[in-house]
Design a binder for these strands. Sequence first.
DNA 1: CTTCAACATTAGACTATGCTAATTTGAGGA
DNA 2: TCCTCAAATTAGCATAGTCTAATGTTGAAG
Lengths: 239, 239
Amino acid sequence: MHATLRDANPPLTRSVEDYLKAIYHLSNQGGFAATSDIAAMLEVAPPSVSGMVKRLSEAGLIEHVPYRGVQLTAQGRRAALRMIRRHRILELYLTQQLGYDWGGVHAEAERLEHAVSDELIDRMAGALGNPQYDPHGDPIPTATGEIEEAELVSLADAGVGTKLELRQVGTQDPARLRYFADQGLTPGVLLTVTARQPFNGPTTIGLVPSGDPRVVGRELALVLWCREVPVTDRGYAGR
Amino acid sequence: MHATLRDANPPLTRSVEDYLKAIYHLSNQGGFAATSDIAAMLEVAPPSVSGMVKRLSEAGLIEHVPYRGVQLTAQGRRAALRMIRRHRILELYLTQQLGYDWGGVHAEAERLEHAVSDELIDRMAGALGNPQYDPHGDPIPTATGEIEEAELVSLADAGVGTKLELRQVGTQDPARLRYFADQGLTPGVLLTVTARQPFNGPTTIGLVPSGDPRVVGRELALVLWCREVPVTDRGYAGR
DNA sequence: CTTCAACATTAGACTATGCTAATTTGAGGA
DNA sequence: TCCTCAAATTAGCATAGTCTAATGTTGAAG
Ligand SMILES: [Mn+2]
Ligand SMILES: [Mn+2]
Ligand SMILES: [Mn+2]
Ligand SMILES: [Mn+2]
């Protein structure tokens, strides 16, 4: 037994768990999560991310390509999905059983997700009837780490009348990205498809909840990847 | 504005909160909590306690008399009672609402007490009908930091048939302390008063749950300070 | 093919918390 | 009174995580 085998599976710290979750959310579709995006999401300085990235990749939780970004390994993905399961079950439980509204519940879950045991999460899930979706409509990973991958549709293909959450902006072009940001079209935004003109015409949408209309040409609409949201959704707060 | 006034009220860390709770439990009745007892309760090495004691007294949370021990200041006591309120409400909620048994609930509460918000604690307390006692019979401090001081009775004065929790051994004599320990009479032990002989005679007790009998002479019984426990109590696990 | 600005990383410092080993202290027993 | 020993403290080191300032890298614009 080598002395270098210190402790194969030390429990993850709160910081590590939050980094893994952030990387999961930022590296959808096999992409890389950028240092500065992780820093922005966790509200830490970029060098703090570089330091953590070193530790996480030494621990086998992520792959790091210098100056490009990071991706989760299978092990890191398992850990991230475990946290996402906890977070979503907690938000659902606090909302349905303790009268929380959607404003306060995210911050509470953000802390509790690191402190609850697997047993408590399973008991909460049981009390809720083992739900498959959280109140945002996001799928809740199973205890064994499977998640129903929300398949994304391009805004150009989405049905008129559907409600969507913008999930990914599939371009790297800074001018286009800047334009989308100006229009309020950033990941996480909710919208409804109001109309679409024929012959590859533009799609008209309304932002939720403001109702502000936007008209998006086909070329741009093709790169706006969205998730369909159940219409039973009420508002949106937190992530 | 002095630069030395860094941050008047930084949030307390998990370690700090656990130290304050331990000191509260160890320094009943205006006594001092000893370094080695704190270390044993928190399962850390004694020098770790010395280090934390320095920080806590610089923060105004405790008073330290070198080589004697520590006591909570008013501020430290407030913080400790806040944690005890959280812990006891959590144990009650997990037991009554989520089917926990008394074995697992203490460890869960020990972690969650640091992560929950005041709002969540108040909601849990509300869902339980704002209880005044936890299932051990211990009083739950109010949100404003008041606690019903469990008044202690000497074993020599306790009524026959009452159920007691040994809370304090009021002697410093090593020989007597060793004897009590040999008899299994250490703080936290539950017992029932079986009989008392007349003319300042000995008290006969039964340990709970083993039922083992003990006979304690008046001189010794006088220094065993106990809290009366409601007879509805079921078992005892955790602290 | 340069140049530059944004992004990433490295360097160096600091806090909180823990450990082991060495030293100091104080109180009870000879 | 003095000795001894358990308890407490100090000294020195380690790890995790954060920061600011300095430096390195890359890709896009000219
Ligand atoms: Mn959330
Ligand atoms: Mn979190
Ligand atoms: Mn407990
Ligand atoms: Mn605790």
